[in-house]
Design a protein around this nucleic acid. Sequence first.
DNA 1: AAAGAGCTTGACAACGTTTTCAGACTGAGA
DNA 2: TCTCAGTCTGAAAACGTTGTCAAGCTCTTT
Lengths: 354, 354
Amino acid sequence: MPLNIRQVAKLAGVSNATVSRVINGSDLVTPETTQRIRRIIQELNFVPNRSAAHFKRGKSQIYGIIVPDLTNPFFMEMVKIFEELLVENELELLVANTDFHSSRTQRSIHRMLLRRVDGVAFLCSEQQAASLESLVQNRIPVVTTDHHRTAIGISDIVVNFRDGMSQIVGHLKELGHQNIGFIGGSEGLATSRDRRDTFLNAVVKFGMSSRDRWIVAGDYKISGGTAGMEAILDQDEVPTAIVTANDLTAIGALRKAHEKGIRIPEDISVTGCDDLEISDIVYPPLTTLRISRRQYAQMLFDALQIGAEELSQPGKVFSLPMQIVIRQSTGPPRAHGGQISLGNGAVTATRTPR
Amino acid sequence: MPLNIRQVAKLAGVSNATVSRVINGSDLVTPETTQRIRRIIQELNFVPNRSAAHFKRGKSQIYGIIVPDLTNPFFMEMVKIFEELLVENELELLVANTDFHSSRTQRSIHRMLLRRVDGVAFLCSEQQAASLESLVQNRIPVVTTDHHRTAIGISDIVVNFRDGMSQIVGHLKELGHQNIGFIGGSEGLATSRDRRDTFLNAVVKFGMSSRDRWIVAGDYKISGGTAGMEAILDQDEVPTAIVTANDLTAIGALRKAHEKGIRIPEDISVTGCDDLEISDIVYPPLTTLRISRRQYAQMLFDALQIGAEELSQPGKVFSLPMQIVIRQSTGPPRAHGGQISLGNGAVTATRTPR
DNA sequence: AAAGAGCTTGACAACGTTTTCAGACTGAGA
DNA sequence: TCTCAGTCTGAAAACGTTGTCAAGCTCTTT
């Protein structure tokens, strides 16, 4: 039912080619003709069918973003900023959420392929490299995050978690902590294992100590934080500080601590990672690691702006800095050996013999 | 560079029509032929170009959602659930965020038009009816939220805020409160004024009282809550309970209270609206009004599934219930006339003479 | 054996644009 | 006056798919 370019052309007494040129701002058309056609378009309320145009051009002007958890404010903000970046460039955004399910991930990738998007930002750290390659085979640029590997046409943005962990663990060391626990992400994800190992390296590097039973997995959500905190607090001895894989986890840990009557940071210090807006709102405000979302999104966008030649070459790796933000969830440890009284009994916070 | 249906057809020794039929699961094709073509598609890694198909069919199979603030967990969850609904139906989602800017809203609507989406869920309550009509003129169904008006082809989902307010104010009344303040949304938005009036009506209905100076505007964000709380606390007399327009505002209020050393709910009760996930996590957990996001999203989706005939008729209005969730941010008021000591001076909580 | 029904397939014209190529002007230079 | 370059415009062929229509089969049925 909507008008098409040919009808506009007929009314204007020109050919559709001329109308097309006006729409696309070509300078080949006389100013007078341009004016006249513009006016007619206005009068008719004509809106060109951009999908037809992009179909013809073979470029959809649509980008896709695939995230594991839209509910996580971090990814939501990434989506938001990425969208802003695209709108500035007259581009459109298709959003896919996988909820950490690999089948949904596969399907999301396939959907992007079906739509022939012009690029895919893949923010799931799970290794689905095989499916991603199907995108590249179809000449669609891909950028991943924290995959720590690149392939033909696939670039990778890695956050410098090693440096971040140094800042966090260093900060705890300065405060006088010696025994640190860790609540990570889901054990199945490569990033989770990676972050845990990075944490352990930092602990060793600073001459501090941890224990196997203080290292627990989570799920990058609040629930993982509460469960992880509970698991750690159930031990006979508990660490004086707990580092977590992201802010949601830390918030969950805070909540469980509050429930058990444990004071943060007086009894135990807790740190997060991401610096969400709410992390400054929760009680106590979180000490965490900040990643610039704008910089991150810009890197994603830039990495997707590659030409046909580059698409046949190995992707590049970009590194994103992290910056510690010190708030009130960290503080000096209790005097060694002090008792933390819990609702369910007493737990001793001790120094672990080396 | 990617293959097209004709090349597949040639390799299979059939016509492109047959391949098309196989792709679309038509039962007109012999099982053997279907198998053969399927195998070839598999071998070639052929992915049909769905945009071409949708262009041809005149249906994009893409829906658009326009939200005012992607950063707000409420909208974020709505986007998430809406996306799930669409994926189940093999549909795609285009996301637009307006940040409450009317120019960005206009542009978002126009973008949807350019793309010829199959429907638009417009979650901004600002009255942009004029632009929305341009969608309908182009045969694109639209559903709005809380516009309290429908137009040809535009349905509206309204949350039953009146009932919600009754529950909230009634709850406060039961606790013994008499003087209530209100922190709303941005004054420029129709919903904000609407919610404020609904609040005032409930106050009158329950025979309670408020004051002009206890009724302040916010911005539906945390910042508006902190500012609004500050404005109210700056008064000579403060209410014993504060109702807010959404959870983020309430969280901002909580934060400001905490900063000023005011205890919630001992000194002042605070209520929110939305029941965000974090609302159960903040301290103290918020008493708030719950809206079922799933039901909401489903309503949006259903409202968009209308035929050509209905598109020429006035849209329908759907009502969404709200349910009070009582947590720890509300409690009985202080004994009347009790002093609340603030960092910046003393403020009396009194009963307002009727 | 002819006719008809039912099933499977192919040819071809769309869909609304962009883009190439050539044609029609104009004005300047020879 | 003729030619040539330079502007502007139009005709027509794509792009990859779907869907209509007709045609070719194979069975029945008469």
